[in-house]
Every structure is written in C-alpha cells, then in structure tokens.
Simulated scan of single mutants.
Amino acid sequence: MKYKIHISADVQTEKIGEGTTIWQFCVILKDARIGKNCNINCNVFIENDVVIGNDVTIKPGVQIWDGVTLEDNVFIGPNVTFTNDLIPRSKQYPIDFSKTLIKKGASIGANSTIIAGNTIGESALIGAGSVVTKSIPAHHIFYGNPAVHSGYITKEGKIVNLDMIDKEGNHYHFINSELVLR
C-alpha cells in the first residue's frame, strides 16, 4: 500500500509518503508535502506551502495554512486553528505569510489557536483550548488564554511540575535541551 485516500477527499498533491491515510472530506492543495505514515482525519484542509513530516496525526476540523510546518511525530488535536497573517484584511494578501513551526514530537490539544510566526518546541504540550501567542520552548507545557507556562513534559510524556518534580517525587533537570531525571 503506497497511501490511502478516501473517495470523498479532494487531494491535489502527489507528494504523499507511503502508509499515509487521508480520510473523508479533506482538501489538500497541490504543493503540500505530506510524509510517511500520517493519519489525516476527516474535514481537514491543507494549503500549498505546508510541510508535514512523518508519523503525524491530524484530528478532524483542522486547517493548516500556507507557512506551517509540522515536523515528525506531531499530534494536532481536533479543531486546532493555525493563523498565517498577523494583519488579515479582506482581499489583501501579504507578500509572505508568517512561518509557524511545530517541532518533532509536540502535541497541540483540541480547539487551540496557534498565532502565526511562532515555534512550538520539541515534545512540548499545548493544553486544549489554549491560545498560543509566543514561541514555546522544548518540553514545556503551556495552556490557557493566553497560554502560560504550567510545567514540563519528558519525551516519553511524563508530566513534571514547575518545581521540576513529577508526581512520584522524582526530580528532573535539563541537559542539552532534554528533560532528564536528576
């Protein structure tokens, strides 16, 4: 199986990696690039200047606009909204759209809004319903409106509080941008 596209999807790109599944009622424009083993759920819109890495999950109701890059192993929850124009006006388009980068292993919770021009760091976690107005460092947890720093998360998904302690009482610290046991 090269990749699987549901009959009701309008997929114009041919740049799709092996093992990717694209579900019902998706629209994917011709210049989008999609990696291997991705799962793009129903009702997703992907514009032209979009790069999606390998093993990415995109839940229903997401729109990914020009200028957005999702690296490998990213999770995008239902109804996440990306923006790409900081001063949107009807029938007026910027010369270049703002670039947004979601780094490897990051997860963005349902109904979050990611304002254009920001980077979400590796393995970071954005809580459901958050509005991200600035770049988020690797392994940080942010949530709220606007999203605020609320803790840390390991590459394996273990939650660590602001004092760098997990619920079992283990202490953590950063070494070369990785959150590890002390």
Rank of each mutant, 00 (worst) to 15 (best):
G127M: 05
A32G: 02
P78Q: 12
G169N: 10
P137A: 12
V27P: 00
H6W: 13
N73P: 02
D10F: 11
T69Y: 00
L181S: 14
Q24N: 09
V160H: 02
G127V: 06
H140S: 13
M164A: 12
D31T: 08
L86W: 04
S107E: 10
V180K: 01
W23V: 11
E71A: 13
S130A: 15
F97A: 07
G35Q: 08
G61W: 01
E47P: 02
N48V: 10
V27T: 13
V62C: 09
F45D: 05
E156Y: 04
L101G: 15
K158F: 00
Y172V: 04
V68Y: 08
A138C: 14
K103R: 14
A138G: 13
P146H: 06
D31G: 13
I114Y: 15
N170F: 04
Y93T: 00
I141W: 12
T133K: 13
I28Y: 08
Q63S: 07
I16E: 12
R89T: 12
I115M: 15
H140Q: 11
K2W: 04
V80R: 04
S130E: 04
G53H: 02
Q24G: 06
T100F: 09
D10G: 01
Q92K: 05
V11T: 05
I165S: 03
I76D: 08
S177Y: 05
N84K: 00
N176Q: 14
S112C: 02
G144L: 05
I16R: 12
H139A: 10
V62E: 12
S90R: 10
I5W: 02
G61L: 05
N170Y: 01
G127T: 03
S8H: 06
L179F: 09
I34R: 03
N118K: 02
W23R: 12
S123V: 00
I46A: 08
N84C: 04
L86F: 01
I52P: 02
I34E: 07
K104L: 10
V56N: 03
K134A: 15
G127S: 04
I114C: 13
I95R: 13
H173D: 13
I22P: 09
G129M: 06
E71K: 11
Y93C: 05
F75Q: 04
T83Q: 07
T69Q: 14
I58M: 09
I46V: 12
F142G: 02
F75V: 15
R33Q: 14
V51K: 14
M1N: 01
V44N: 09
I114D: 15
L162H: 05
V27Y: 14
V160Y: 05
P78N: 06
T81K: 10
V50Q: 06
R182A: 00
R89G: 07
I95T: 07
V74L: 11
K4F: 08
